[in-house]
Design a protein around this nucleic acid. Structure first.
Lengths: 118, 118
DNA sequence: GTATCGGTTCGACGTTCATCAAAACAGAAC
DNA sequence: GTTCTGTTTTGATGAACGTCGAACCGATAC
């Protein structure tokens, strides 16, 4: 076994650095799973494009998303459901159409978890 | 078809908001794929724990990571390779042991891509 | 009422992934 | 040289994922 070098104090770290003993995960199992689930929701090019569309337009009709990502309507609906389940997007039905929005607060949670980079 | 509401100008957006026409992805295919690949590298609880260990300790012996995530050495090596391939970690062999470090600059790229939340 | 259109869900298919046991590899100690 | 010890790679297996066509549900138009 080898001990690690001195751990630098990084008070700005929110989630990823809760404790410091080496040979032990610094995030609890639940936190790691929750973070991984959010990353997984973004771990597909189609969903990255969808989030970019939502963040650009504040509100996007579902009918525009299928063409925006170049996939079938069924596939687009599948990805939108994943983003909704992850809390990264919300939907609202108005008449015939469904409109999607991004949830910036959820993205903020990710930024805070990563806000340790240099 | 329905047009979206006015797109708010968000000059701080680096990657996700390059253009603005609705019904069209705001990120190029290559960018979306690159971002998705980085998110995918973090889309597993074991890898989230590993990154937290690396960010806490500045340098971690590979021998400590297996126990830290509660998986076999082979599995730990597998996850470390994924993090290395994504550019999120580097390794250095000194004598018998291998030491891993985080690459904060790569995490910064993700933060900038997400730095649009509220 | 029926017909049509937008969106979601279901079912199936092929691909990718996480995991571990076992084998292979690389140094260090003898 | 041989024998450990730590790490990576290989192979196999079961689970999860992305994709699309078809079926389904809601709301509008006729």
């Amino acid at each position: 076994m080898a001990t690690t070098t001195d751990a630098p104090t990084r008070p700005e770290l929110a989630v990823l650095t809760a404790c410091c003993a080496p040979a032990q995960a610094a995030v609890a199992d639940g936190n790691a799973q929750a973070l991984a689930d959010m990353f997984k929701a973004l771990a597909d090019p189609a969903r990255v494009k969808i989030m970019a569309m939502l963040l650009n337009a504040e509100e996007v009709c579902a009918c525009d998303i299928s063409g925006g990502i170049g996939k079938s309507a069924a596939t687009a609906s599948h990805h939108l459901k994943i983003l909704k389940d992850a809390g990264l997007a919300t939907s609202e039905k108005r008449g015939t159409w469904v409109y999607y929005r991004a949830v910036p607060q959820r993205l903020n949670a990710l930024v805070e978890a990563l806000a340790l980079s240099q």
